[in-house]
């Protein structure tokens, strides 16, 4: 597994999916994100690392405008998806979020059946023309989330009855079913045990073939294991961004070095 990803890491994708320029985020008076510039590539796993409270989750939530749901939050600068400014007045956040899916820190399956959880996105976006097509999407998504074999016999049972790791994979299947182009993951493994974590990590590596994946993690080991690109955030600033291998072996900025060697964070 490790060898394979090392090989793949060399296959550098150069198609840029998301561009961020001079992004500033304010929570009321607090300046949470300062001057962030970053290019996120397609079909790549990009990891955001940094000490807690450094703004990595905040920036992640900017990419699909989840910050809109927080009243006091204000975003400035330009974030573009495929060259289109997502903060443009004409952009409907609902349409944006269909393209940029999100998986959250804590597994949050809806209090519905497993099937309905996965079918929820396709239903609201009208992706399936009939029951058969919907069944197909659900199956593919659950397979894609490496959950199909575990739940195929109990699709009508409530999603809340699954174990923590299964719940998180269900949430990933739910996000995948909407057929997004970008998948944002906000510390997807922080509430999971080590075995569930390794399952989800393997899954993330698989997902890279289809999506641009952005993952926020507090674990440097995880970032090293799953990502090709890594961005290090510190106190609201993007300190360093580059190839994961370079960041971990040869950091340019002293702050990155301190963090990686465990002196801050």
């Amino acid at each position: 597994m490790n060898d394979m990803s090392l090989v793949e890491r060399r296959l550098v994708q150069d198609e840029i999916k998301i561009t961020a320029r001079d992004v500033q985020v304010f929570y009321g008076e607090k300046h949470a994100i300062k001057d962030v510039n970053v290019d996120i590539l397609d079909k790549t796993v990009t990891a955001f690392i940094g000490p807690s409270g450094c703004g990595k989750s905040t920036f992640l939530r900017c990419i699909n405008r989840m910050n809109d749901t927080i009243d006091i939050c204000r975003v400035e600068g330009r974030i573009a998806l495929d060259g289109e400014d997502i903060y443009d007045r004409r952009v409907d956040p609902v349409q944006l979020r269909a393209k940029v899916g999100m998986v959250f820190q804590k597994p949050n399956p809806f209090p519905k059946s497993i099937y309905d959880n996965v079918a929820y996105g396709p239903r609201i976006h009208g992706l399936a023309r009939g029951r058969a097509e919907l069944d197909e999407i659900v199956e593919k998504s659950l397979r894609g989330a490496a959950l199909w074999n575990e739940v195929k016999d109990r699709l009508q049972e409530p999603g809340t009855g699954l174990s923590g790791g299964q719940q998180q994979r269900l949430c990933i299947a739910r996000a995948v079913a909407t057929a997004p182009e970008v998948l944002l993951m906000d510390e997807p493994c922080s509430a999971l045990d080590p075995i569930a974590t390794s399952q989800v990590e393997e899954l993330i590596d698989q997902l890279r073939q289809e999506f641009s994946v952005v993952i926020v993690t507090h674990s440097m080991q995880q970032a090293a294991r799953v990502s090709q690109k890594t961005a290090f955030f510190h106190l609201g600033n993007l300190v360093e961004y580059g190839e994961t291998d370079d960041i971990f072996t040869n950091p340019q900025d002293p702050r990155t070095e301190s963090y990686i060697s465990g002196r801050i964070g």
């Binding site: 989840m66 609902v94 349409q95 996105g121």
Partner: peptide
């Protein structure tokens, strides 16, 4: 959040 993150209104 989960629902909004999937792009529902």
């Amino acid at each position: 959040d989960g629902s909004l993150g999937l792009g529902s209104t």
